[in-house]
C-alpha cells in the first residue's frame, strides 16, 4: 500500500543506535508519521471509489425525475426522499416494493434455513453412519457442486411446473435448497469433531438423533451462523430462477423486480423510484451481515474445541 511496509517497520528501530527496540503496541505493526496518513488516504480513496455509485443511487432516489435526466447529475440529495420511497414501497411500478421485499425475505430465509437443515442432516448421515453406498452418495452430492442452477434450469423448471409450484413460495425455495457446498462444509466440520465425543455420548446413552441435537448442533452454532449469512445473501440475490417461475407480479422478488421496472420500448423510466427500490433492496442483506457479523467472523476463523 505505502512505502512503510511491515518489513520496513521491523528494520526501523535499528537506526537509533543504542536505543532498545520498543515492544510493538498490542500486536500491531508500528506506524507513525507520513506512513500513517498515506495508509489512511489509500483506504479513504478506496472506500470512496466503491461507495460512490451507491451514493449516486441514493441521491437519485431523493430527487425528481427531471433532475436525473438533465445533466449534470446532482451530487447532493434532493427533497423528494419521502415521496419517492413511499411511492416505491406502496405502489411501485409493477408491484409494491413492500410486497416484493416480503417475497424476497421469505425466499431468502427459506433457502438459507432449508439449506442449513438439509445439509446438516446429510452431512450427519455421511460422517456418522456406515450405510451401503455412503461414498457414492457423498460423491453424487459433491458432483452437483459442478453444476450451477443455470445448467439444470430447464429440467428443474419442468419438474416444478409439473408439481404445480409455479408462482408459489415452495417453487421459489425448494429447488434451491439442496446444497453441496453446505453439506461439504458441515462434513468437514463434523470430521474435526473427535470420535471420542460420539463414543462418550453413546456410553452416556444418547441415541444418534439425541447426539445430533444435544452435541453436534450446539457445536456447529458458529458454522451455521456463517453459513446463514452467506446463504441468505445467495437467496436474496437469486435472479434467474424467480424470473423464470414467477409470472404473477405479486410473487416477484425484489432483485428481479428491479429489472422488471426498467421500461420496455418508449416508456419513460421512473428512475427515482427504481433507485429507491435498489436502495431498499440493499438494506436487508446489510442488516443481516452487520447483525450477525460477530458470529459470522467467529464461524469463519475459529473452530471451537
Amino acid at each position: 500500500m505505502t512505502d512503510r511496509d511491515p518489513l520496513a517497520a521491523e528494520v526501523a528501530p535499528k537506526r537509533g543506535t543504542g536505543r532498545p527496540a520498543r515492544p510493538l503496541p498490542d500486536g500491531m505493526v508500528e506506524r507513525r508519521g507520513a506512513g500513517l496518513w498515506l495508509t489512511h488516504l489509500g483506504l479513504i480513496v478506496g472506500v470512496a471509489f466503491i461507495f460512490f455509485p451507491i451514493w449516486l443511487a441514493f441521491v437519485a432516489s431523493t430527487v425528481e425525475q427531471q433532475a436525473i435526466v438533465r445533466p449534470p447529475m446532482p451530487l447532493l440529495p434532493g427533497d423528494q426522499l419521502w415521496e419517492n420511497y413511499s411511492r416505491a414501497l406502496i405502489s411501485g411500478i409493477n408491484a409494491p416494493v413492500a410486497l416484493m421485499l416480503a417475497n424476497s425475505a421469505v425466499m431468502a430465509l427459506g433457502i438459507a434455513l432449508g439449506k442449513i437443515v438439509i445439509s446438516l442432516l446429510s452431512a450427519f448421515a455421511i460422517v456418522y453412519f456406515r450405510f451401503p453406498g455412503r461414498r457414492v452418495f457423498f460423491w453424487l452430492i459433491f458432483l452437483t457442486l459442478m453444476l450451477p442452477v443455470e445448467v439444470r434450469i430447464v429440467p428443474t423448471y419442468e419438474v416444478v411446473a409439473n408439481f404445480g409450484m409455479l408462482n408459489s413460495y415452495s417453487g421459489l425455495i425448494l429447488p434451491l435448497i439442496a446444497s453441496a457446498t453446505a453439506t461439504f462444509l458441515f462434513r468437514q466440520f463434523f470430521m474435526t469433531v473427535p470420535d471420542e465425543l460420539a463414543e462418550a455420548a453413546r456410553v452416556d446413552g444418547a441415541r444418534p438423533m439425541r447426539f445430533f441435537f444435544d452435541i453436534l448442533l450446539p457445536m456447529s452454532r458458529t458454522n451455521m451462523a456463517a453459513l446463514f449469512v452467506i446463504l441468505f445473501i445467495y437467496g436474496w440475490n437469486q435472479y434467474l430462477w424467480p424470473l423464470l417461475i414467477t409470472t404473477d407480479p405479486s410473487m416477484n422478488t425484489i432483485v428481479m423486480g428491479i429489472r422488471q421496472m426498467f421500461p420496455s420500448g418508449d416508456d419513460i423510466a421512473n428512475w427515482p423510484v427504481i433507485m429507491a427500490t435498489s436502495i431498499l433492496a440493499m438494506i436487508p442483506p446489510v442488516v443481516v451481515v452487520i447483525g450477525m457479523q460477530r458470529l459470522f467472523i467467529r464461524g469463519l476463523v475459529e473452530s471451537e474445541k
Binding site: 471420542e196 455420548a201 452435541i215 450446539p218 457445536m219 452454532r221
Partner: peptide
C-alpha cells in the same frame, strides 16, 4: 462408564 484419553468432554 468410560473415561477417555482426551476426556471427551462436551465443549459447549
Amino acid at each position: 462408564a468410560m473415561v477417555f484419553q482426551n476426556y471427551a468432554l462436551y465443549p459447549h
